[in-house]
Nucleic acid binder design. Structure first.
Length: 992
DNA sequence: GACTAATCACGACG
DNA sequence: CCGTCGTGATTAGT
């Protein structure tokens, strides 16, 4: 066995040279800083608010209320009548004049933010708070003073007294007597909404694994409605009859929110528990099998020759279908009402869900979403119509494309909109989203919804639905099934979105030099295309609470993605809200601010309200008003309604948005902004029981400079540019020994044809002259940020024979690993691989490296099938982004080579790299891409893993092993089956 | 030249 | 029609 990789040393050198040339995100090139730090703020006791050390801490519990003698109510703002915004503003303005008197003599200033500080040693005195301008009757709405501080000590209410001469007075408001403010100091536990947890919530919640999540929150006014979900969320979009009846009720009653929610709550009390139990059952099933399998489940099996013929069979079958969408799982199909199974809605690319189960059966990969989306559509690569190069097209062409798309869908729109007239009219009448009685079309579910979803969206149909706070991606329950489909749709939609963006970016990058095109917003264009194609998810309603198919930790690159999946509808606005009866309630906020310094205290968020022209430098700043988003957040506080929080951050990886889960508005107040105008502040606290965000753990690791469970510092022993550590918090096992290599080992007899290479010195942009670009079908298959544009049968990178520099955009995977990867012990799948970085979709991860074997030789290595990777046309596996060709007709897949059948296998058992640890998943986030750069032997391409979607830190990396059922045999020819423990909601339990 | 910061133009959505 | 915790490109400054 000898190393014959002819450029191994050169490559290593290049690798070293290139180490500094890190994966560059487009956003990396440009930074944008917010001019006014309206978002950025610190919770009490943190950051700038940390004015006191603990010894001088305020005696009081954070959030406590010291009632002003002029105060009307006990709870901070909670019940204060805010109807007269002017009064409130006035009162608040004068808050800065409030003095805190000690013993009635000494005056202590209270900051405008109403921090009461430095009460150290003043225990014996009582604290009086009075309004120095208390003689003004207009101050009747002045509310209590919030004690903010870092101390946890309790300030005894008895020590809080109104000062003379207002001592013990009652205050008359609106002609009614109110209680003596101080004596009836509210019980402390009222101060924090989140501490008062109903059953199944907060501290009362049963212990949960991350996967299980938290079942539900039933807070006083924070309602969950599992039952409703089941009706709403057949992929999210429809309301069942009962639900619609409820909605009618909501419209009729006066106290809309309360009554509706009460009803919802009572309806929902049984279902969630049932669902939880079912989930448990399912979980235990998986657990017991997983125990049996333990580490062996990361095994890889070979599949025989039959595999390919099977694939072809499937392909033939699938080609008869015309389909862009995902196929529903078998369960989904069974759940579709029979009358709907007969629906054939739209010609052309739009779905024919009905026939899929047959194909799925053939596929024997029924619930793997990516495979469903893919095997079907494309004619075999390199064949047929794909022979022509893709022409760069300019804006006009794209507009043409768009208009064609529009035309197609306009017809649909007109067709459908007539059915929706009533809904539309209702919406027109309301200035905001309105609770409406959904038309019969709205009962459409699953795939049909994808057809009219954009119509719904256009019609501005904003049905309010309350999604319970719970992890609803479990299988086995109705909810789980729904969510499973929605999760798949969300992932698929985002994947397509990213793919379209990359494709557009590719065109942009290719065309830019030739003609200085006007700047394009590829995100908007991509979004528009998806919308026109009905690919939006959760479009039909504004969702309060958890959004189906979106999980805590999901990462996004563009704001518009939040809109696409229904997480946050505003494209720019930070506060999204929905009209719920008479009130508006906040559904979600985007906190884009440099919170980098304050990650440790991430469960609390202080959010600045909107308005006041803070964002417009050309307009005069004004006081923020209690309207729109501000009012919505205030109402969410009143109703204890959960608010989704999306955190935006800028880092070296560019801007990302992370869904941080549900928060409750804990309190709100007004403050003086940097421009001297009043702004609203909202303190939100993360609802406990939700999965921890990965970056917190990483932050913690960095802080303590210790990785918990670290057992090997660098399994590559310095051979990779960044060390790859091994982490095990499950048991004491260390990773099994093997020889770490960073280049393929080719056998003696294997002398790959040398790669001719290009002679480019101009960045390999010439689609006709660059040899490599020609091989790739006339385009560089990567974006300038290093992301692969789309999956292809074979990708040619420029190689050692090329004249272009190492910085050539057509050199990506050869530069090696760019992310900080580590291997870790999983609970049921042996060792797995994950990244400490956020990985944008399309990024190169790593190669699958080992010894190259012929199949027959691999067969002889009995009992050694764990780390085998069959080289072949895994293009069928790769067509993860197949919607692309139909979404972008101009951007047809190019002619490109296919891998020639040589029956080779990579064996990573003895010699390998980190790629050998990557596990199988039924819902993988990576895919294997064949790449050639250092030789031209199409039988033995490099196997390169690329990210198929945005991957948050610490999420396990996985790809689909693509075993075919009953094709995996042991050394004696017996059919082997392999348990799958990927844990995915889509998992069938078997690797095929 | 690389990087930062401010500004502009355009934008979709509700 | 209007406003918005966007986005990319341009420009000026360091």
């Amino acid at each position: 066995m000898s190393l014959t990789c002819n450029d191994s040393t050169e490559r290593i050198q290049k690798l070293n040279i290139e180490n500094g040339d890190s994966f560059s995100h487009p956003k990396l090139l440009k930074y944008k800083r917010r001019k006014v730090s309206v978002v950025r703020d610190f919770p009490p006791g943190c950051g700038r608010s940390l004015l006191l050390n603990s010894s001088t801490a305020t005696k009081g519990v954070i959030g406590d209320v010291i009632e002003s003698p002029l105060s009307v109510h006990h709870e901070v703002l909670g019940s204060v009548e805010m109807s007269n915004a002017n009064t409130t503003l006035e009162a608040t303005t004068k808050k800065t004049n409030i003095s805190c008197l000690e013993d009635g003599h000494n005056t202590m200033n209270v900051e405008s933010s109403l921090l009461i500080e430095d009460l150290e040693g003043k225990d014996e005195s009582f604290i009086n708070i009075k309004n120095s301008i208390g003689d003004e009757p207009s101050l009747k709405d002045l509310h209590g003073v919030v004690v903010s501080g870092i101390g946890k000590e309790v300030l005894e209410p008895s020590k809080l007294r109104p000062c003379s001469p207002l001592d013990d007075t009652t205050f008359v408001s609106n002609g009614k007597d109110v209680k003596k403010v101080v004596r009836e100091y509210p019980p402390r536990r009222k101060i924090s909404a989140i501490r008062d947890f109903p059953p199944f919530c907060g501290q009362n919640a049963p212990p949960l694994s991350k996967e299980e999540g938290s079942p539900m929150i039933v807070s006083q006014n924070n309602f969950v409605h599992q039952n409703k979900l089941s009706k709403l969320d057949k992929n999210g979009e429809c309301l069942g009859d009962n639900a619609r009846k409820e909605e009618r009720n909501i419209e009729l009653v006066e106290d809309v929110t309360k009554l509706a929610m009460d009803k919802i709550c009572s309806d929902s009390m049984v279902e969630p528990i049932k669902a939880t139990k079912m989930d448990d059952k399912c979980g235990s099933k998986i657990k017991c099998t997983s125990k049996r399998m333990q580490t062996s489940c990361s095994d890889k099996f070979k599949f025989g020759k039959k595999r390919k013929s099977t694939v072809n069979e499937v392909k033939e079958t699938m080609e008869k279908e015309v389909d862009t969408g995902e196929a529903p799982s078998e369960e989904n199909i069974s759940n579709i009402p029979s009358h709907r199974k007969q629906l054939k809605l739209v010609p052309c690319e739009q779905t024919l869900a009905v026939e899929r189960p047959v194909v799925l059966g053939l596929m024997a990969s029924s619930t793997c979403p990516w495979r469903q989306g893919k095997l079907n559509l494309k004619p075999s690569p390199g064949g047929g119509s794909n022979g022509k190069k893709v022409k760069k097209h300019d804006l006009r062409q794209l507009e043409k494309t768009k208009s064609i798309l529009k035309k197609e869908d306009r017809k649909e729109y007109q067709k459908n909109s007539s059915k929706k007239t009533s809904v539309v009219e209702k919406d027109v009448n309301g200035d905001m989203h309105q609770l409406v009685v959904a038309g019969s079309m709205d009962t459409s579910i699953n795939d049909d919804e994808s057809i009219d979803s954009h119509v719904n969206h256009r019609s501005n149909n904003a049905n309010v639905s309350l999604i319970p706070f719970s992890q609803i991606n479990e299988s086995g329950s109705e909810q789980g099934t729904d969510s499973k489909g929605t999760r798949t749709r969300v992932r698929e939609t985002l994947r397509i979105f990213h793919a379209v963006c990359r494709k557009l970016l590719q065109e942009e990058e290719a065309g830019k030099k030739a003609q200085g095109n006007a700047p394009r917003r590829i995100d908007f264009i991509a979004a528009k295309i998806l919308k026109d194609k009905g690919k939006y998810v959760n479009v039909c309603k504004q969702i309060l609470g958890q959004v189906p198919g979106v999980e805590v930790g999901d990462e996004f690159r563009y704001r518009i993605e939040l809109n696409i999946i229904g997480l946050h509808r505003q494209t720019q606005g930070g506060i999204d809200y929905v009209k719920c009866g008479q009130k508006i309630l906040a559904t979600s906020i985007v906190a884009s601010g440099g919170y980098a310094n304050n990650l440790d205290n991430s469960d609390v968020l202080i959010y600045t309200g909107q308005g006041g022209n803070l964002m417009h430098s050309d307009k005069k700043p004004e006081d923020q008003k209690l309207e729109r988003g501000n009012l919505a957040l205030k109402n969410s506080f009143d109703e204890k309604s959960p608010v989704r929080v999306i955190r935006g951050s800028e880092s070296s990886d560019g801007r990302t948005y992370v869904y941080d889960g549900l928060y409750l508005v804990e309190k709100w107040w007004q403050d003086m902004g940097p421009h001297g105008k009043l702004i609203f502040k909202f303190q939100l606290c993360r609802i406990p029981g939700q999965p921890e965000l990965a970056w917190k753990e990483i932050k913690r690791s960095k802080k303590f400079k210790v990785r918990e469970g670290l057992c090997v510092d660098d399994i590559s022993q310095g051979k990779e540019s960044t060390p790859i550590c091994a982490v095990n918090i499950i048991d004491n096992e260390k990773p099994p020994p093997f020889n770490y290599i960073t280049n393929m080992i080719y056998p003696d007899w294997c002398r790959p044809l040398p790669f001719k290479g290009c002679n480019c010195t101009n960045g390999c942009s010439d689609s006709e002259r660059c040899y490599c670009v020609v091989l790739n079908g006339g385009e560089i298959p990567f974006n300038h940020n290093g992301a692969i544009v789309e999956a292809k049968a074979l990708v040619y990178e420029c190689g050692p024979s090329c004249k272009c520099p190492p910085s050539c955009h057509n050199r990506v995977s050869q530069h090696g690993i760019k992310f900080q990867l580590e291997i870790f012990k999983t609970k049921s799948r042996g060792w797995g691989v994950r990244s400490l970085n956020s990985i944008p979709s399309g990024s190169f991860i790593c190669e699958y490296i080992g010894e190259l074997l012929e199949d027959k030789e691999a067969d002889q290595r009995t009992g050694n099938d764990e780390y085998l990777f069959d080289i072949g046309n895994n293009y069928s596996d790769n067509s993860l982004w197949d919607g692309l060709s139909t979404l972008l007709p101009d951007a047809q897949a190019n002619a490109c080579d296919i891998v020639e059948d040589g029956s080779f296998t990579i064996d990573a058992a003895s010699y390998g790299n980190i790629g050998r640890f990557i596990n199988h998943s039924c819902t993988p986030n990576l895919y294997a891409q064949n790449v050639l750069y250092d030789h031209e032997d199409k039988r033995i391409p490099h196997i390169m893993f690329f990210a198929a979607e945005n991957i948050p830190p610490l999420q396990e990396l996985s790809y689909h092993y693509n075993y075919m059922m009953d094709q995996v045999r042991d050394s004696e020819g017996n059919i082997k089956k392999k348990r799958c423990h990927c844990g995915s909601a889509e998992c069938t339990g078997w690797m095929y």
